[in-house]
Every structure is written in structure tokens, then in C-alpha cells.
Amino acid sequence: HITLTNLITEETTHVVMKTDAEFVCERTLKYFLGIAGGKWVVSYFWVTQSIKERKMLNEHDFEVRGDVVNGRNHQGPKRARESQDRKIFRGLEICCYGPFTNMPTDQLEWMVQLCGASVVKELSSFTLGTGVHPIVVVQPDAWTEDNGFHAIGQMCEAPVVTREWVLDSVALYQCQELDTYLIPQIPHSHY
């Protein structure tokens, strides 16, 4: 019994991606959610070859190996599938703050939850000092008015990073160091 759908849910078992011959794909929301959820992320060749051979072929032979941004053979989907007991964002409290493009905020929040993070909706909701690490995620190029994202640091004691930190961490299924993704914050004294 196979159901085809464009939506990823808890029940989804396989995410089928358009890939090149070496099982490398573009980074899409579907790709990120498939990895975050520990699903099989496979090339569409799995479907076409299975139909051709009239049997369901082994997914291992068709698993996506990499993507056009993070590298052609990083094995993120395999790492995620085999590490669902070791979520990459466990112990983190993440607030997805401000506008985002090409990806609804609720989907970004679901993605970080699938990776083990707790989501907070407001900067004031962080449970500071409880052994949980707060992180604010923003997408600077989605902000149309002044660079308000440079002043988020005044509203909460949390590192502010770009959305790329989430996307790179999920694609590779390895929590990336914050340093290269940090957004400089204007210190309090400048006000």
C-alpha cells in the first residue's frame, strides 16, 4: 500500500527527490524536513527503477548522498536516519524571529523540533538559566525595514544566528558551530 502526497507528515516514510546520477539534489523544504524527520530521502531513480523491475528495490542503493550547497557526498540523510536517538538540537531552545522567505515560519519551527529543539514563540519566553541553551534564528535578507535584527541582543541574552545555521546543520545532520553564522549585535551602550 503506497500513498503519494506532496505533504510531509509524521506518517511519511520516504521523501523522493529529483537528483543527478550521483544522487545529489537541490536543497528544498521537503529535503530538510525529510532529513530532520529521519525519513528515507531517496532519488526518484528509486521509483523509476522499482517500476521498471516491478519490485520495490532497496532504498540504500538510492539514498540521497549530498546536495548542491553542502557538498556532493556528506551523507546527511543517512546520518539522520541512523541517529534518531541522538537529535542534533537536543538541549537547545530556538526562537525563529522575524520574517522568513521561501519557507513558512511554522515549517522552520517544525524542522528544529524534529531535530530535538524546544521552540519558543517570543524572545521573552526563553527559560534562561535552566541548562537549556537559547538561540535566536533570523533571516536578515528578509527584513525590509531597518536592520532591527542587529538589536535583538538587547531583548534577550541569546546568540543570534542566520537561518543558514539551521539549514546547514539539518542538511549535514551535524549541529554546526555558531561562530560563522552569528549576527553582530549592537551593544547596549549605543542607545
Rank of each mutant, 00 (worst) to 15 (best):
Y97Q: 10
G71C: 12
P99R: 11
R163P: 06
C96V: 06
G38T: 12
L33R: 05
R54L: 12
V64S: 02
R90I: 00
V64P: 01
S189A: 06
D146Q: 10
A21F: 10
E93V: 07
Q139R: 01
F62S: 01
V42E: 00
S189Y: 07
G153V: 13
N6W: 09
Q185V: 06
F45Y: 12
I2P: 01
P104Q: 14
G71H: 03
N102T: 04
E82A: 12
V24H: 05
G98R: 04
L108I: 05
H133E: 12
G71P: 07
V136Q: 04
Y173L: 13
T3I: 11
T162R: 09
E22V: 08
E145T: 08
G37I: 06
V69D: 08
Y44L: 08
Q139A: 12
P99T: 09
A158P: 05
N6H: 06
L92W: 04
L123I: 10
D85T: 10
L92M: 10
T105M: 14
C96G: 05
G34I: 01
D141S: 13
Q185G: 11
R90S: 14
E53V: 09
F100M: 15
T19Y: 00
R72T: 03
D106K: 07
M17S: 03
I186V: 07
N70R: 12
F62I: 00
G66I: 00
A171S: 14
I35Q: 02
L108R: 01
Y97T: 10
Q113G: 05
V119G: 12
K39D: 01
G71Q: 05
I51T: 11
M17R: 00
P99Q: 03
N147E: 15
L33I: 14
H74I: 11
F100S: 08
Q49L: 13
V136P: 02
Q185D: 02
M111V: 13
H150I: 14
Q139P: 04
L57Y: 06
Y191R: 09
T130K: 07
T144S: 09
Q75C: 15
N73S: 06
C25S: 13
H188S: 10
E82P: 01
I152K: 14
L182F: 10
E93Q: 06
C25N: 01
K121V: 15
D67M: 02
A80C: 13
I2E: 01
Q75S: 09
I183K: 09
R79S: 04
V16T: 03
M111R: 03
I186M: 08
R65S: 13
E26Y: 07
Q174W: 09
L57M: 07
C96T: 07
F62L: 02
L108T: 07
Y173Q: 08
A117H: 01
A21E: 09
I51G: 08
G66E: 00
D168V: 06
T13Q: 01
C95F: 10
Q174D: 04
V47T: 10
N147S: 10
M56V: 06
N6S: 15
H133R: 15
P99L: 11
L7G: 04
Q113P: 01
G91A: 13
S169K: 01
R72L: 10
R81A: 01
E10R: 11
E63R: 08
Y97E: 06
E145D: 09
G76D: 00
V161S: 06
E63A: 12
Y191G: 09
Q113L: 08
M103P: 02
Y181Q: 02
E59P: 09
M111E: 01
G91P: 05
E59Q: 08
M155T: 05
Q185S: 14
R90V: 07
G116W: 06
Q154A: 09
H190M: 12
L33S: 02
I94V: 05
E164P: 13
M155V: 10
V120S: 11
T5Y: 07
Y97N: 09
P140T: 02
P134S: 15
R79L: 11
T5G: 03
A151S: 12
E11F: 11
F89R: 00
A117L: 03
A80L: 00
L33E: 04
E122V: 15
Q154K: 10
V137L: 06
H150N: 05
P184S: 12
V41E: 02
G34A: 08
A158E: 04
I51W: 09
D67L: 00
E157V: 14
W165Q: 01
T3F: 11
H74L: 07
D61T: 12
R54T: 13
Q84T: 14
E11P: 09
V119A: 12
V161E: 00
A80H: 04
H133Y: 12
L182G: 13
K121W: 07
D20T: 07
A117Y: 05
S43T: 00
I2R: 06
Q84F: 13
H133L: 15
L123P: 12
A158T: 05
Y173K: 04
H188T: 08
M155E: 08
L92R: 13
V69L: 09
T162A: 05
R90L: 11
E164D: 09
E22A: 12
I183M: 11
I2A: 10
V69R: 12
V166R: 02
Q154S: 12
A117P: 03
Q154L: 08
T144K: 07
V42T: 13
F62P: 00
